[in-house]
Design a protein around this nucleic acid. Sequence first.
RNA 1: UCCGGCGUAGCUCAAUCGGUAGAGCGCCCGGCUGUUAACCGGGUGGUUGGAGGUUCGAGUCCUCCCGCCGGAGCCA
Length: 432
Amino acid sequence: MEWVYVEDLKDHIGESVELRGWVWRSRSSGKISFVTFRDGTGFVQVVLERETLGDEKFKSVKRLPMETSIVVRGKVREEERAPGGVEILAEDVQVVHKPDEPYPITKPDHGIDYLFDRRHLWIRSRRQFHILRLRDKVIQAIRKFYWERNFVLIDTPIFTGAIGEAAGNLFELDYFDYGKVYLAQTGQLYLEAAALALGKVYNLGPTFRAEKSKTRRHLIEFWMNEAEVAYYGHEDNLKLQEDLVSYIVRYVLEHGLEHLEFLGRDIKKLEKVEPPFPRITYTEAVKLLKKKGFDIEWGDDFGGDEETAIAEEFEKPVFVTHYPRKAKAFYMQPDPENPDVVLCDDLLAPEGYGEIIGASERIADYNLLVERIKEFGLPLEAYDWYLDLRKWGSVPHSGFGLGVERTIAWIAGLEHIREAIPFPRTLYRVYP
RNA sequence: UCCGGCGUAGCUCAAUCGGUAGAGCGCCCGGCUGUUAACCGGGUGGUUGGAGGUUCGAGUCCUCCCGCCGGAGCCA
């Protein structure tokens, strides 16, 4: 008998098949019992009848505890009364492992701390199943987007010297006799080197921020997708970002619709995400916020409330461009028309999900970059190799970083980013 | 780090003004051939986060500590 996964059952209607998986829940009656069965690819209802299985077999399997692992053989049939429209009429059930203790996650009324203490088990639950499948789709979309455009994947290092966007917020480790090294906050500087070698490059991997951030938009360890392209200016950069984000949303709508529907996501809102995205300059955004009653002055950075207030003016993600030089990182190219602002953008997701991209054109001129490093009080010697990039064949180039979990949280409509990653690292949690 | 909230059965919560510690779910036993978080009957279950204090009497009030949740700052 052929071993079939739940996700492929629709191709086997009327056949007898073997399923290997686990009991999610079961409901038992006197002579019939319904098992919600899961195998990692989906959930399906298995019907156990006394008449089909015989008295003895039925008695032994009619009340299997949650998370009993079982192999089921039976007939696949369309059934209107079954959730999902397809069910299995069991002809044989073999128990692989029957738990001795009650499964700790039962009805959906547990507290968030209890659930995260049992994250290794919680990921078996339906909601988590759908979220993690969506995450997989988002990452598939990212890789496919760059692959289709002939970008080269550059895996940037996790251990780095003391360089990055800021000196603080770094996790410090001892590295043999070398001394202190730090966990990467960004692969950007390495991607800039790679862009000058390979043209169009990207990365996708974990990054670490030792920020004591305690909000629904922050993780200590999160995944970032960064891209960097030689000879790209500010405008090319914006175009690439809106193409990427639209591509991800379209891909998920096409390949992950059932997951979005399970999570109750408003699909119509996602369908509107097509290029071009609206744009607003920082200066215009400040005016808008003042009109809305915010106490903000030109030069201040935006907080979560400000970002939400800007984003709610638009149905699509919105670019906020041309931030004040002093509010942003040292490597950003000044606007030739106004040196107080830089050629950068933040992409704000709709519905209050905040910043999902930070981007800029990078400074190409050696002397200007040295000046900025000094101006920001950074140690010049740590940037030796980075400055080298401006010594030989320096060119204008631009890039950005996309926060993977924030993108997932937005697309999936999650209340908190911690559900968007299998095992979240938050301020007070590294277990499990 | 700062501000606010919470901590009671395995879980989610209730307990009036300071006056006998409760419910639902889970689990165990029994019943039921179409359940959808099944349902019905019975049973099981407590150092009220910890230490100290006020009081005739503290889950409830006070002090300190611990843990968690929400938010701020910072950021993707």
